[in-house]
Design a protein around this nucleic acid. Structure first.
Lengths: 229, 229
DNA sequence: GGGAACCTTACATTTACCTTAAAAATTCGG
DNA sequence: CCGAATTTTTAAGGTAAATGTAAGGTTCCC
């Protein structure tokens, strides 16, 4: 699974903070973000959705974050980051050592929160970090939209093109053998797809290169494979 | 009244800040935003329009913000947020306790200013926080009413359609995989709902698109998912 | 010059998605 | 609690976009 597909629950009683953090995560790219303003609501949501991560305020109108934390941990091994307003809480968190994965004190820098969330998700679920927008020459690849933007026009990527280009981008500058590329496109033991691969390469070149027949970025290494530079 | 219909006056002598803040508010959705670059201008505008909120710089070319504040408060009980460049001003504000509703020091994060404005408006006028209407092409989505308005007619959204459209709107421009969409519609571990999802997509298209069979906004990315543009 | 590796194009096929109608489930008013 | 109305799901045949195939062309290198 992809980092940004993690389901995250935010529990905080201040509506502004709640919305702000929610929008921050959405904007960063997290697809599934839910909000709860008190323990009761949080528990209800926790019953219906399997979250990958919980951001938990210490102060809540109907009970404190610590007890909610215990209740959550009884049910699932989901990682938790505490958001605390006061330093005392932080001290208490540190002292208790009750197994929170991280804590951060308000006010915090948005960037810092994002970093910590990503760090926790990565070490809990061993998720690969996904790429932001890549560029190939003048072309901008927008992975989340599945598009290639060139100065002249915008192209949609098909599923195979997407997978192929991704593999090439992840190994930029490195030659990938035809075998390896076929393996990533056709999971079933794959011989006989060499020509098909060629056609996909051609189609990518038509979307990436000025002159697809004289490629400047998606190059062929005769007898070895292809590489993206 | 709606939060975003509040009339707001910004008073600041730095033209760049003035324009920046003005555009920020406009972009956020505030419909009525006026700008003034000095006390004189501010007073003139204040005579002609009944503002709901004033953002006031402390430093002004023809008098300071504090006296302007007093003059304003003699006339109307309008809430004021001070924008101060220096920490000393902040200290003075705090000390004076002259009844400003909030203050924020430059430079500030756009997001923070928006939050504070919203908070002040809410507690002054007891405005319900409204969900901003989204639009998809010519169609206006009214979340609180659960309707879609098109030039031709008005449709009611069913529960599933509502949830689906919301998810797509929250991730506008981003491809959402069929898996993710199914997860949001059927929280219980959900396989076998792919076809059902398709039908809901079709129904949404019938309410959103000119020609549901040639969608221009709710697009399918074959092999990848769906996206709203 | 000739073979090998790769390109290119047009066309065939396949698969993922569309569409519709009808069945099942749910909601709602009496 | 029952029946009507609405919503949701299932099912099945249809469609076209994405993919695969094949055949002739090009380039490279010995």
């Amino acid at each position: 699974m992809n980092l940004y597909e993690s389901k995250i629950l935010i529990v905080d009683d201040e509506p502004d903070i709640l919305r702000m953090v929610g929008e921050l995560l959405k904007k960063e790219g997290y697809v599934h973000v839910d909000l709860a303003s008190d323990c009761c609501m949080a528990k209800r949501m926790f019953g219906t959705v399997e979250y990958h991560m919980v951001l938990l305020d210490v102060m809540l109108p109907d009970g404190d974050g610590f007890t909610l934390f215990d209740e959550i941990r009884c049910v699932a091994e989901v990682p938790v980051i505490f958001l605390s307003a006061r330093d005392e809480d932080t001290a208490r968190l540190r002292g208790l050592g009750l197994g929170a994965d991280d804590y951060i004190t308000k006010p915090f820098l948005p960037q810092e929160l994002l970093l910590r969330i990503r760090a926790v998700l990565r070490r809990t679920y061993h998720m690969e970090d996904i790429v932001k927008n890549d560029t190939v020459g003048d072309a901008v690849i927008n992975w989340s939209a599945g598009t290639i933007q060139t100065p002249d026009s915008e192209y949609l990527l098909t599923a195979k093109e997407y997978a192929l280009l991704k593999k090439l981008c992840e190994n930029r500058g490195r030659i990938l053998s035809i075998n390896i590329l076929c393996d990533t496109l056709w999971s079933d033991g794959s011989y006989g797809y060499e020509n098909s691969l060629m056609v996909h390469i051609r189609r990518l070149r038509e979307k990436l290169e000025k002159n697809p027949s004289k490629p400047e970025h998606l190059l062929t290494a005769r007898g070895l494979g292809y590489k993206l530079v």
